[in-house]
Amino acid sequence: MNRKKSVWGKRAFIAGFIILTSLCWCPWAYGHITGRTLAIPTWAVGAYICAAALFVLEWVFLFISGLAISDEELPGVLRDLEAVGRDEATGGEGE
């Protein structure tokens, strides 16, 4: 159940990331706005607002949501990965 919840939680974050990224990469929703706000173009203010919203979403995902890797989990993950035999992989530096 928890795993299912985290998968959906992750998907929700990814959907948010994609929408806000599209707004940070192209002003399709606000580029038509003319005039100036705070002395700079109003569309530039729109871009900054989208960037700020994405920044907040990233902060929640990385540090609040519990969905991103933490230092508590790190030793266990590294131990699991080290258990995967070196001879299982080829072409890498471990060879």
Binding site: F17, W25, F55, L62, L78
Partner: peptide, 22 residues
């Protein structure tokens, strides 16, 4: 700004497997 999550998703395994595999 999207680098915050793009780097996470693209380089989380770089960080974890990289540590393990030196």
């Amino acid at each position: 700004v999207p680098l915050g999550f793009l780097w996470y998703f693209m380089h989380r395994k770089t960080f974890l497997i990289g540590r393990t595999r030196k």
